[in-house]
Design a protein around this nucleic acid. Structure first.
Lengths: 251, 251
DNA sequence: ATGTCTTTGTGAACGCGTGCACAAAGATGG
DNA sequence: CCATCTTTGTGCACGCGTTCACAAAGACAT
């Protein structure tokens, strides 16, 4: 039944939407839990509930990977675990370096979920000579002087930055120059990287500030029945250099 | 199955777009740095570069605040710092509890950027009796039996969960029942919460998996010739339930 | 005051992501 | 072999977010 029908061009299958990629790890986690309970198949509705998403969204996400479901039955758990793992590149081993072995860096090195699937802490690097030689999570900390050699020798392409913000950019530059093309940044800094290098940031204070915003709005809605977010009454008298209160937006 | 709504319809009608809210902390950080260097004014172009975003986007973001720029000049740094801080609710103090004082929880407690602006670690809570009484980051760890009282006494509305995934949901339930309405979840679990409670998650392994996906794609594009990644899902022939494809996981 | 120059604020177009609703596909039972 | 039932896969519409491009607004020089 293959011939005659112009199937979906393969060019599309290459481009999985970014939003879908971000959800694949979520599905994979839920599927792994099902697999450990020896559940053979799962419907989109059940899996969606477990992953906390809409079932239509889940089906559409999977449709980008191909047709792996069976109508009337659902998805084969083991098969789907394998497919998603392969799509995410977790069937191979990714050596990772952590730069900056302070409180956070050490915590990440000890983090179980790190080495669980696909990722392996290849090296810990710190700029403090007193740290070099000490063991953290069973791994010897190496000095940052050897950063380039460590990256090269281990074929590292993913780097985790847990340094103070002041040195994050230069650490990043050295990582990139040494061959790292993916960076997970925990330092509260905007990193500038050349084209072709991916950066994802994890920023505690940004997350808290976003929560604070919503929290404030909830508190405001409780007291004031009417919505008066801005321009209710502003006391800019003691703040602005200009000193006067700007008029309310007309439109 | 406890299907609480994990996500809610986002911002209200008159509210600031969620994407904008997520960027405000970024702007605030850049502006604070300028303020410390005593820079009086800044243009949207300069500030956008410092925050790593498009200048048009930045201007539109500020327009939602009722932006107070001066055409031909730019934005007054101090004034903008104040406006954004107020909008984010950082002019008041937010007591925060951290539940789960393991490696990660302790690292967060020691994290400087935590108490820097607006946030204060009101209590550290752990279920291990051996932890109770010990000091972490100068704060005495309290036992989780007293969780409700701690939340209530300190007026805590923001909770940080750094427990193992197995107990995260029940910790979450207790936090919410005690009055917490914003949760920052570091445990690799999907949390179900009632309406009106905000949850943001920080998940190391998800971030790494997303990076791995892009990394794999980069590696694949290099070769370009002998790549057979999905091997073409061309109608899949007889895609039996457990046929040709090895459902093996490198677990 | 007037003209020029700089930069903001925003209308409009576009693309992406989401969710509904339903036809197609396969399982299942008689 | 046919009817029915379940669940997938997806066309479509809608809303949000991003970006372009430009008129409006103010600073500044003459």
């Amino acid at each position: 039944m293959a011939t005659g029908r112009t199937h979906r061009p393969a060019t599309r299958s290459r481009g999985i939407p970014e939003a879908t990629v971000a959800r694949l790890p979520l599905y994979l986690r839920a599927l792994t839990a099902l697999s450990e309970r020896s559940v053979p198949t799962v419907s989109s509705e059940e899996l969606a509930a477990a992953a906390g998403v809409n079932s239509a969204k889940l089906r559409k996400d999977f449709s980008y990977l191909g047709s792996y479901g069976t109508r009337g039955v659902g998805y084969d758990v083991e098969y789907l675990v394998y497919q998603i793992s392969r799509e995410l590149g977790l069937t191979q081993d990714w050596p990772v370096v952590i730069v900056g072995i302070g409180n956070l860096g050490a915590a990440l090195a000890n983090y179980g979920g790190f080495a669980s699937r696909g990722f392996r802490v290849a090296a810990l690097i710190d700029a403090d000579p007193a740290m070099a030689g000490r063991q953290v999570a069973g791994i010897v900390v190496q000095h940052s002087d050897d950063l380039e050699k460590i990256i090269s020798d281990n074929g590292v392409s993913i780097g985790v930055i847990t340094t103070p913000p002041g040195v994050a950019q230069q650490v990043c530059d050295r990582l990139v120059a040494a061959g790292v093309t993916s960076i997970l940044n925990f330092a509260p800094t905007v990193l500038a990287v050349p084209d072709g290098v991916d950066v994802r940031k994890v920023d505690l204070s940004i997350e808290l500030q976003i929560l604070a915003f919503h929290e404030q709005r909830k508190a405001g809605e409780e007291h004031e029945g009417a919505v008066a977010p801005v321009a209710a009454h502003r006391d800019a008298g003691e703040q602005g250099p200009d000193g006067d209160v700007p008029a309310v937006m007309p439109a």
